[in-house]
C-alpha cells in the first residue's frame, strides 16, 4: 500500500536533484512501514517532466497541473496537497525544504491538523515509531522528534539524503482533479518574480561552492570570487556580512536562515566563520578557508586553511585551477 507521499513543485520543466533525494527519503520511510510511495507533482505545465518522474520508483505519479499553480501561492497549494493527502490515506507527506515548501507545508499541515517536522536530516524506526532528527539552535543541537497525528508532515534537507537513481519508467501517471480556488485566494495577488541573474550552477545543488565574506570588501571585488567559481564550474555563495554590505544579492546567502549547502568542496574566502554561516555549510565534504586573520573561527572547521591575503591568493588560485583544468 502507498503510505508515503512526496510533493514536488516543478518549474521550468526541471526535476531537481532535491526531488530525487526526497524520493530516496520516501523509499527509506516506506521500507520502515512496509509500504510504497507516490509522487505528487505540482506546476503550471508538467508535460516535460512526467516521464522523468515515472522513473523514480513511485507506485503512482500524480500530476496537479494548472496555469495558476506556477505562482506557487500557499493559499492555492495547501488545499490541493491536503486533498490528495487525505483521499490517498497517506501517513507521511514529505517535500524538500525549498522556499515553496517552507511557505506551503506549515499551512497544509495546519489545515489537516497534522504535526510537522521541519528540515529533517535523518529518519529512523524506533520500535515502530518514525523518529526524525532535525537541527536546532543554528545547527548546534540535533533534536529527535516523533509526530503524534494521523498524517505526519515533513520537510527534509535534500543535501542530507543521497539522490535515488532513476530506473525504468514504472510508475502509473495520473492527473489530479483540482479543487476550485478558495475565497482566500482572492485576497492575494501574485505580482511577479524577479529572478536573480546567474549563469552558474544552482547554489543548493552545486558540487563546488565558492563563498565570499566581509573580507572581499566590495561588490566589484566579488568578481575575484566569480572568476574562481567560473574556472571550477562552481556556484557562488556569500556570508550574511557580504550580503548586508551589499556586495551580492541576498539569494546567495549561505547560513542558518539562508541557503543550506553541502557540496563536495566549499571554499570560504574572507569569511570569519560565524555560527549562523557554519550552520549552512558544515555538511560540506571538504572545506577550504582563506582568511588573513589566523584567529578566524572558520579555520576550526576547515580541512585546509590558508592564512593569506585573498586579493593576492585568489587570482593565483584561479590561474592554477585553469592550468590543471586545461
Amino acid at each position: 500500500m502507498s503510505n508515503v507521499l512526496v510533493v514536488a513543485n516543478i518549474a521550468d520543466n526541471e526535476v531537481k536533484k532535491a526531488v530525487l533525494s526526497t524520493a530516496a527519503f520516501a523509499k527509506t520511510v516506506a521500507g520502515f512501514t512496509g509500504g510504497t510511495y507516490d509522487i505528487l507533482a505540482i506546476g503550471a505545465d508538467l508535460s516535460g517532466v512526467k516521464d522523468q518522474l515515472a522513473r523514480l520508483g513511485a507506485g503512482k505519479v500524480l500530476l496537479a497541473q494548472g496555469a495558476d499553480l506556477g505562482d506557487a501561492l500557499a493559499e492555492r497549494l495547501a488545499p490541493i496537497i491536503a486533498g490528495v493527502a487525505q483521499s490517498g490515506g497517506y501517513k507521511v507527506v514529505v517535500s524538500a525544504a525549498t522556499s515553496i515548501a517552507k511557505d506551503v507545508f506549515p499551512r497544509f499541515a495546519a489545515r489537516i491538523g497534522a504535526g510537522m517536522a521541519s528540515e529533517v536530516v535523518a529518519v529512523s524506526n524506533e520500535g515502530g515509531k518514525l523518529t526524525y532528527v532535525r537541527p536546532m539552535y543554528a545547527g548546534n543541537v540535533n533534536g529527535a522528534v516523533q509526530i503524534d497525528s494521523d498524517v505526519q508532515v515533513v520537510t527534509i534537507r535534500p543535501t542530507e539524503f543521497d539522490a535515488i537513481a532513476p530506473g525504468a519508467a514504472s510508475s502509473a501517471v495520473e492527473d489530479v482533479a483540482l479543487p476550485a480556488p478558495e475565497a482566500v485566494c482572492g485576497k492575494v495577488e501574485f505580482l511577479g518574480f524577479e529572478k536573480s541573474v546567474s549563469n552558474r550552477p544552482d547554489l543548493a545543488e552545486a558540487a563546488i561552492v565558492i563563498s565570499g565574506g566581509r573580507g572581499v570588501k566590495s561588490k566589484e571585488n566579488f568578481k575575484l570570487i566569480e572568476d574562481l567559481a567560473d574556472a571550477l564550474g562552481a556556484a557562488v555563495g556569500a556570508s550574511r556580512a557580504a550580503v548586508d554590505s551589499g556586495f551580492i544579492h541576498n539569494d546567495f546567502q549561505v547560513g542558518q536562515t539562508g541557503k543550506i549547502v553541502a557540496p563536495d568542496l566549499y571554499v570560504a574566502v574572507g569569511i570569519s566563520g560565524a555560527l549562523q554561516h557554519v550552520a549552512g555549510m558544515k555538511s560540506s565534504k571538504v572545506v577550504v578557508a582563506i582568511n588573513k586573520d589566523e584567529e578566524a573561527p572558520v579555520f576550526q572547521i576547515a580541512d585546509y586553511g590558508m592564512v593569506a591575503d585573498l586579493f593576492k591568493v585568489l587570482p593565483e588560485l584561479t590561474a592554477e585551477v585553469k592550468k590543471i583544468k586545461g
Binding site: E126, N140, Q146, I147, D148, L265, I301, D303, Y304
Partner: peptide, 29 residues
C-alpha cells in the same frame, strides 16, 4: 503533536591543516 524524544550534539568538524602556498592547496585538493 510533535514530541521531542532526545537531543544530541551533532558531529563537529575539526580543524585540518594549514597550507602555505596556492600550489600546495591545489595539490592537496
Amino acid at each position: 503533536k510533535v514530541r521531542s524524544v532526545s537531543f544530541t550534539a551533532p558531529p563537529q568538524r575539526s580543524a585540518g591543516v594549514i597550507v602555505e602556498t596556492v600550489e600546495e592547496l591545489v595539490a592537496k585538493l
